[in-house]
Amino acid sequence: MNGFLADWAGAVPVFAAPFLLATTGLIINERAGVMNLGAEGIMAMGAVSAVIAMLSGSGLVAAILCACAAAVAITLLFALLAVVLRLEQVLSGLVIFAFGVGLSGVLGDSYANQPIKALGPVAPRIFAGLPHWLGRILDQDPLTYFAFVLPVLVWWVLERTELGLRLRAVGEDAPAADAAGVNVMRMRIGAVLSGGLVLGLAGAHLSLVGSQVWVNGMVSGRGWIAVALVTFSRWNTLRAIGAALLFGAVQAVIPLILSSGLNVPIYLIQMLPYVATIVVLGASGIGRTSLSAQPEDLARPFLREERR
């Protein structure tokens, strides 16, 4: 299994990682009942902040922390609008989307198109003895590895801890959770900010691993694809791994086909991710499990003793 397949398999994790991070971040939000459509803008803030930090001379770890901090900062605004002020969540999300994309462009203006040092592979030598294709798959950077570990951790916290139970309760039935003594607002703010932090990581992955350069508007709709992947993974971060891998595989094959020199219709090939999104959304709409998987109180602001 060398050549084309090994190239493909080796490229999938890097393609999947930003989607997986973003989807995980959004699932944390939505399980607490908050729909955050600002993902694209928050990722842009993460991406630009990582680059600004790198160009200002900080190390990779500091750059990743900067991305998280910037993402949390803009998410704080979303939390204020959507959770504290209880504004319409869809609109608040769209505001954050536009604001994040715009602000990242302004902040990154004098840092655009300047290459930064890449986030390198963890330890290529360890994989030298393995079969070529396996080595290709495992030879990834730390952020990509983290992208695949995080969903497992998040799943464990959500499904196996009291904190997770409380968070899910807030998302399923906020008044009941409130009556049981859970501070709904605090729980939702916590979930929104943690989700924002992970979205910042997704943005950092795009600029530190993907492009190694900041260009205005470079998130290019990837945040919206993550919004769709949340539904496809049925609000379950373990399923998100599968969804992101499937999506990453579709995306990773495109450059390989395009650069293979095969005389294939390029527009059809480039349509694949969008076709996959439609198929994925269609598939997630089939069967009752998907409906019951959606948090009951998703996108419903909570006001104690409000008639529902």
């Binding site: 190239d7 490229a11 993907g210 450059p255 293979s260 020199g261 390029i266 480039q270």
Partner: peptide, 19 residues
């Protein structure tokens, strides 16, 4: 298929190098 998508540009470049 865009005038600017640096992530994709980098990915295409890598794919060509692999080939």
């Amino acid at each position: 298929n865009s005038w600017s998508d640096p992530v994709k540009e980098g990915q295409l470049s890598n794919a060509m190098i692999e080939q």
